[in-house]
Nucleic acid binder design. Structure first.
Lengths: 212, 212
DNA sequence: ACGAAGCGGATATGCTGTATCCGGTTTGAG
DNA sequence: CTCAAACCGGATACAGCATATCCGCTTCGT
C-alpha cells in the first residue's frame, strides 16, 4: 500500500532505509567486490572482499548472505555496462563494424576482469539481474548480426550462437600464462572476425547443430 | 642368462624387477589414471584412481608417491602419442594440410580427454617425460610451418607461437557447457585455420610480441 | 612351506572456505 | 545530551576435502 521507492538501487522495495553508515558500507562492499572479483576471480572469499573493503567479515555477511548474492549484485552492474556498450553499437551504420567494435570493447574490459571472464565461460551466476543483462546483450547482437547479413557483410551460416564461443575463445587466450598483461588476444580476435566476415570464395562453415 | 631387461618401460634402470602381480597392478593403475584423468580432469584424486582400478589406495600411493608422479607418467604417454601424430604429419606433401590434419587429430583426442586439455592450457605437469614430448611436438610444428611458408600457403607473420593459443581456444570451445558431446569445435578450427592460411588481399596480423 | 613383497582401506592430518555470534561502537531521534 | 536500536568487527566453530600413512593380512615365488 503505502510503498515508496527511495531510489533505484539503494534499498529494496518495502524495506526501511539503511542507516547512513550502513549504506556507505554497502557501497564500499560492492566496490570491493568488483575489485576483488576482477583481480582474483570468483573463487575469492567474502572474507577477502571484507578485508579489501577495510570492513569486518560480519558486515559483509550481513549485507550479502553469501558469495552468490554479492556476485549477483556485482556482475549485474558489470553486465549492464556491457549491455549499454552493445546498445551504443547499434547506432553505427556499418553493422559488422559495429559488432566488431562492440566485441573489442567488451573483451577489452574482460581482459582486466577475471571474474567477468569466468562468468562468460561457465554461466555460473544465476540471479535475475545478470540474466536480464545477458538477454539484452544477446538481443543487441542478434540485431547487429541481422543487419550485417542484410548489408552482405556476414559470412553464411554465422549466427548469434557464435558469439559466446568466440568470447570463450578469446578468454582462453587471455587466460594463457603470460608474463606481461598482453594484448595478444587482439591478434586472434582479428582472425576470428575475419572468419565471420563474408569473403568471395568461401568454403561453407561446419554446422552448428548436433546433426552433422 | 642371468639378467635381462624385460622391456623398455617396466622397471627403472638399476632397480630389481617388480613381482608379477605388482607389475600388473602398475599397469592397471596407469590405465585407470588415463581413464580417470580423461573423464574428470586433473583434480581427480589418487583415491579415485585407485577405486577405478579396483585397487586399494595404498597400492597406488606405493607406486606413485603423489598425483604429480602419476600424472607425469600418464601424460608422458599421451603426449608421446601426440608427438607421434605430429611426426607422421611431416610425411605429407602439402605442409599446411599436414599441419591442419595434425591439429584436427590431436584436438579430436583432446576432445575426449579433459586432463589433457587442462594440461594444454596451464602447463602444470613438470616432469621430464612430458617436457620432452612437448618439445618434440613444438619442433615438428615448426618444421611444418616452415615448409608451409616455403610453399606459400602460410599467412605472413604466423609462427609456432600461434599453435598453443589456437589449441587453447579450441579447448575453450570444448569446455563450453553443452548437452551432448559436441563437434562444434571443428567449426572454429576451420575458421582459425582459414585465418592462418595465405589469402590474396590480407590485412597484416597484429603483432605477437609485447612491443606494439 | 615360509619369508619377503605386496595389498587394502580405515583413518589421522592439515587446509580452506563458510558462516555465526556477541561484546563493543556508532547513529540519530527525542 | 541521552539512550536504545542499529550496526560493526573479527575470533572462532564448523564442515568438507584431498592427501598420505600405517599395519594386519594376503599372495608370490623359491
Amino acid at each position: 500500500m503505502g510503498r515508496q521507492r527511495g531510489g533505484a538501487e539503494p534499498a529494496a522495495a518495502g524495506a526501511r532505509p539503511l542507516r547512513r553508515d550502513a549504506e556507505l558500507n554497502r557501497r564500499r562492499i560492492l566496490q570491493a567486490g568488483r575489485e576483488v572479483f576482477a583481480a582474483r576471480g570468483l573463487q575469492a572469499t567474502l572474507n577477502d572482499v571484507a578485508h579489501h573493503a577495510g570492513l569486518g567479515v560480519g558486515t559483509v555477511y550481513r549485507k550479502y548472505p553469501d558469495k552468490q548474492a554479492l556476485a549477483e549484485a556485482v556482475f549485474g552492474e558489470e553486465l549492464d555496462e556491457i549491455a549499454a556498450m552493445a546498445q551504443e553499437a547499434r547506432a553505427e551504420d556499418d553493422a559488422f563494424a559495429a559488432l566488431a567494435g562492440f566485441l573489442e570493447r567488451a573483451l577489452a574490459r574482460a581482459a582486466h576482469n577475471r571474474g567477468l571472464r569466468e562468468l562468460m565461460r561457465h554461466g555460473i551466476i544465476e540471479g535475475a539481474g545478470p540474466a536480464r543483462a545477458r538477454q539484452e546483450i544477446t538481443l543487441h547482437c542478434e540485431h547487429l548480426l541481422a543487419r550485417a547479413r542484410t548489408q552482405g557483410a556476414l559470412r553464411d551460416g554465422v549466427t548469434e550462437a557464435d558469439i559466446a564461443p568466440i568470447a570463450a575463445m578469446i578468454d582462453a587466450v587471455m587466460a594463457l600464462p603470460a608474463e606481461h598483461p598482453s594484448e595478444l588476444w587482439r591478434r586472434y580476435l582479428v582472425i576470428l572476425l575475419d572468419g565471420l566476415r563474408a569473403h568471395p570464395h568461401q568454403a561453407p562453415l561446419p554446422s552448428l547443430g548436433g546433426a552433422d
